[in-house]
Design a binder for these strands. Structure first.
Lengths: 115, 115
DNA sequence: ATTATATGCCTAGGCACGCTAGGTATATAA
DNA sequence: TTATATACCTAGCGTGCCTAGGCATATAAT
């Protein structure tokens, strides 16, 4: 991705992807573009980052996939949708994210007493 | 650390440590306890995580160290203080953090359209 | 015809960084 | 002399995002 420190993405990518799929079932290529558009280019996810995340989420039972073969001709897409288990996981990840943001934001505030 | 997903700490640890030192010059063992206390146990940083961060920050010129040898007897401490360069870096990291929080928080909001 | 670009999925290997699990040394309390 | 607290250091591990490719289909440009 571009923009913020690459390390920041760690630990939040699963949350982001699960959120996108929770809103509407989608497929890899589209998820990347959705994230890019909704962050106005702030997060440009790479395929090499996304697909492993999708496989981890599917292995964990958080999402399910179905192949879509367009009528006549076209490139097949692998659609993912969130499961009940995934919704629980999403709620948990959202909570962890908000808790962590609160912790860090509080920690890094405050003026210097000396240099 | 304990509490949130370990991966969340990545990319924020440098920011956290620099913030602590910016408020008041400090040393490794104390920084760990400060973070633990100020987050009420939410973040329990390990020595194996902190010391490499301190060396990276010092190599980058963001902090400076001086050994403190207590009078008579006692365990010597290595005190760190932030440099001018470090203050600039801290401002930049704070901005990146707030920007990223805004991006992610906006991305993960919104109800589901389907399952 | 051939090249380029967009769509769409997949994967091996690299690298960064927090953690594990040790080590050393001083000081105090049991 | 054993345990705990203080205080610093480090080799190696695991994880996960990225690099840099590969494959295939479809359309537009040269």
């Amino acid at each position: 991705m571009t923009g913020p420190d690459k390390e920041l993405l760690r630990g939040t990518l699963e949350l982001i992807v699960l959120s996108i799929i929770a809103r509407q079932r989608s497929y890899g290529y589209s998820i990347i573009n959705t994230i890019k558009q909704q962050t106005k280019g702030g997060i440009e996810l790479k395929e090499g980052s996304l697909y492993p995340v999708l496989y981890r989420l599917e292995d964990a039972g958080a999402i399910e996939s179905v192949w879509y073969h367009p009528e006549g001709r076209g490139v097949p897409r692998k659609y993912y949708r969130i499961t009940l288990e995934g919704k629980k996981r999403l709620a948990q990840l959202r909570k962890e994210w908000h808790d962590y943001v609160r912790l860090v934001t509080a920690l890094i505030e405050g003026g210097s007493k000396d240099g």
